[in-house]
Nucleic acid binder design. Structure first.
Lengths: 213, 213, 213, 213
DNA sequence: CATGAATGAGTATTCATTCAT
DNA sequence: CATGAATGAATACTCATTCAT
């Protein structure tokens, strides 16, 4: 059963419904990555998918829900990818390297997803002007890095860091990686592998113990 | 004096014309910073300025030109501010610190300008989807930092860096600072002074000579 | 059994078919009474009924037919109710009182039905703008009252009335009662009993013989 | 000056603005009266006026504001017309006759206005289902009639009435007149003059003193 | 110089209906 | 019988731009 006011919950979705939603999300990513968030309309996404606008309204409550779905799917995919690469590492130093490496690798494998999400984060707002996604302020993304920095101080991998310094460093790590995302948006041929190597060195230096002087 | 379909070149602008353009640019900054680029329309800017929409169309060839003007003015103001702070420094280490320090200080003094430009860079596109501003890829912003890193290698302030590493490091420095801009957009009460201090330490470590090991 | 593009005639409807139609009509009444005719869509009715939109299209030729069914069912129910109250009365004066009394009593017992029909009569139109129901002009509703007024003149209950006057008076009686329906739509707690008493007095006065002067 | 968020207040409207608003209101009345409220869209009104849809959005904040304007203008015109006819009458009996007479005369002179407002009152709702206009419950329209009934009891024109009875009678008078509006909507050739005569007799009887028995 | 007025293409969303399964 | 899926037209509203005055 489907009405205009209620969409099925994920667990109740039919196979066809799942497939359509996935298709629409994919097309949304394509359009956003290619034309930019500002130029992305329901009708352009429908055009890309070769379906009528109504289909999108039928499967998603609103444009906002579709956009949120895009972000969620990309984040989930990224998290799964990165987790599988960090799993098994024990020392904070190694985990940090795996974190940077796998994040950039995921970017290299899914450039359009990255570009689309970058566009959305930067642009999506309510009509009143409030941001739809507050990633930077969102501890959800900073917390694991901060934990990692704490672990490194315990296991002797990293230099001592005040709580504030740790937060700044964590933020810097995320901003730097997100910055690569922006660059990727501008230059799809970006040499991500070399970037990966350089960033690992950079943050290795930035976390080294003081006594190394 | 005005010809049809054409705006006067900067050198031919009357005093009134200049004043109006400045007023409109200021109001555009206010609206973009407050409501976001996506929610900024000519009419909202006109409302903010207390003038009719026609005035804006009269003084600017298009919305695009107005947006470009906003970015240019903020960049110029920032450059002047930062130059005045870096002037007199000799050693690369000190210049880098002044660079970071003055950039964040400018952000603290002009949060709305920063937020507006951040919004524009992230969002502004032509109708075909091409970005209006390619800042990251734009060597204009990276070049001075790269030069600084070269100077540091010559004057013995910094560790040795390959050309590529220097570019990555320069990019990281810019991305990190730009990231602070994003955070500022999300949290206007951001403690920029502490951020300034932390970033100076961070990039001091990241540029230190290897023999420090 | 169903042929394409055609619904079974009433006499050929299966038990299930009848039950479904009744359920849908009831839900339509609920939605129209609650949200107003303008806000009533097939999908909202389906939602109320807990069924899919398709079911409604399956059981009713069109939205129009469903709406007509709602009106018919309420009218029939009202007529049965009123007839049972007027039965046995002999004098026109008493029948008129029973008419007014039972009509308002039916309203009090079935407020949602009354509100729904009121909404429909006021709103329902074809796409070309033609009214679906022409109640006021419809002699079907005026005829029995006019007959009653004639009876009253014969049995000496009522004052003499020209044909035209009788029609106006009949119309006034109906409009007044329908007006109560409107008020009921606006205030569900309307004191219908008192209204009933007042209206009986009012039309008693309005029908009294001239010699009363 | 005009922006999207703000319309000029009545006192600041230019001549052209006033003319356009009047034209649009007239066309709205025409369309609503002809096609029904349900079938009245901004685009149909624009079509009727021979202008683009944008013009309507430019001159009215929303469809709702336009609709309210229609109601207000018709009410004002009606009130002015009726007041001029009741002015000079002293006895309640005469005022009541003038009230009924002038109201129906106004209807006869402005059938489309009456039909349009009737349509609007019956149909206009918010998206949540709340009525935009609550005329019946609105004492604004009942109060003058109730005052008139009080005056009649004082000056000896009318029979004694309890407060409640007076309200019911006032409501009946309004509903009956509004009912004529409905009939007019259904039959534009309605003999309003005869109706006027009949209603005056009817409510004369309904207000006569009891001792007349 | 500045404005009010108008345009027309564009936006997201709603809806009655159709139809294969 | 019933459903989920899809359609395409319609809805109100927004916007950058143009232009006569």
């Amino acid at each position: 059963m489907r009405t205009n006011n209620k969409l099925n919950k994920p667990e109740n979705r039919s196979f066809i419904e799942d497939a359509r939603r996935a298709q629409i999300v994919d097309c949304a990513i394509e359009v956003i990555a290619t034309k930019g968030f500002v130029n992305t309309s329901i009708s352009r996404i429908a055009e890309e998918a070769g379906i009528s606008k109504g289909v999108i309204s039928y499967h998603f409550l609103s444009k906002e829900e579709l956009i949120q779905q895009v972000v969620m799917e990309v984040y989930q995919a990224g998290a799964i990818y990165m987790d599988s690469h960090m799993k098994g590492k024990v020392k904070a130093k190694d985990i940090l390297k795996a974190y940077i490496e796998s994040n950039l690798a995921f970017m290299g494998d899914n450039p359009k997803k990255i570009i689309a999400v970058t566009e959305i984060l930067a642009n999506a707002r309510t009509k009143e002007g409030k941001r739809l996604f507050d990633v930077t302020a969102n501890d959800q993304f900073l917390a694991p890095i901060i934990q990692l920095l704490e672990l490194g101080q315990q296991d002797g991998s990293f230099r001592a860091l005040s709580t504030f310094s740790a937060k700044v460093l964590a933020t810097t790590i995320r901003d730097t990686i997100d910055g690569v995302g922006f660059q990727l948006a501008l230059d799809p041929n970006l040499d991500l592998e070399s970037y990966s190597k350089e960033l690992k060195i950079l943050f290795d230096l930035a976390t080294r113990k003081e006594e190394i002087i």
